[in-house]
């Protein structure tokens, strides 16, 4: 039965074959996003420029008025915050893409095809991680041009970059879930109401020590703050450290928070995809 090789039912394949097709199908779905970038380079560039503009705005426009507690250059303080913010803002793209596919029936078309069921989310995840990685390196370049630098070892810097991408990875699953639950335009509104408090109620732009105590405590417990504080520490930038437990264990929490987010939202995504069939 040589001709069945082309479209053999997935069910009849071995586990190895299934894994191989899951990877191939996942790549095909990822490739779709890469084709989007190629067809709409303007959108890609605009998406990449947004965080750069944010950096310039905060670095130069507001930077003069900002004082880093304990001394230090505000731009050095700012850059880890900007890196993490870019990871948070990426969630908007995840939600938009997922909600759009679900409301336009593209998700249903995928589900009616004999492809690997995981490919839809794997493709989404890989494409979003690629985009965020590009954004992050662009911002690092931008920071270096503005006089930001890392003062630690290369290994510490790599760990910092890893923690930032881990945060983005966890937010992919949050984004997929939100996109599946709230379809269409309401999803995009939901994201904006989600990402602004998550982004600004943190230590990304302002030291939490300058906030009222209750607000500063909330900001300290914001998962974003842990990632920002951890990367400041790893990059050797000013503005990290403090008295509270959450601040002192920033690197630990920069791992724990994303894992908690994944532990919550990954099962919810799986359940939501199953519920599409009920």
């Amino acid at each position: 039965m040589n001709d069945t090789k082309i479209a053999a039912p997935v069910g009849s394949r071995s586990a190895g074959d299934r894994l191989r097709w899951a990877l191939v199908d996942g790549w095909t779905v990822t490739r779709r996003d890469l084709l989007h970038w190629a067809r709409q380079p303007g959108q890609l560039i605009a998406g990449l420029l947004f965080p750069v503009v944010m950096v310039l705005m905060f670095g130069f426009l507001f930077g003069g008025a900002m004082i880093v507690p304990g001394g230090g250059n505000y731009r050095e303080f700012l850059m880890p915050g900007m890196f993490a913010m870019a990871m948070v803002f990426g969630i908007g793209e995840t939600v938009t893409a997922v909600a759009h596919d679900a409301s336009r029936g593209v998700t249903d078309r995928f589900r009616s095809m004999p492809m690997a069921p995981s490919a839809v989310v794997v493709g989404r995840c890989v494409a979003d991680m690629l985009k965020s990685t590009i954004t992050l390196f662009l911002l690092i370049g931008c920071g270096l041009l503005m006089g930001w630098q890392w003062n630690g070892t290369a290994g510490e810097a790599a760990t910092g970059i890893g923690l930032l991408l881990l945060l983005r990875f966890s937010l992919v699953w949050m984004g997929i879930y939100v996109g599946l639950v709230m379809r269409g335009e309401s999803a995009i509104m939901a994201v904006h109401t989600l990402e602004f408090p998550l982004g600004f109620l943190s230590n990304a732009f302002v030291a939490t020590a300058t906030m009222p105590l209750w607000l500063g405590t909330i900001a300290d417990w914001n998962p974003l703050s842990s990632t920002v504080a951890a990367t400041r520490e790893l990059f050797g930038n000013p503005g990290w450290g403090g008295d509270s437990w959450i601040v002192q264990n920033a690197i630990l929490m920069a791992v724990v928070w994303p894992l908690i987010i994944v532990a919550i939202f990954f099962p919810l995504c799986v359940q939501r995809f199953r519920r599409l069939g009920q």
Binding site: R39, S103, G105, V106, D108, R109
Partner: peptide, 13 residues
Amino acid sequence: LVGQNAAVDEVLS
């Protein structure tokens, strides 16, 4: 399956 929406990618050709 052809659903009620044209389930194709708008950006791609």
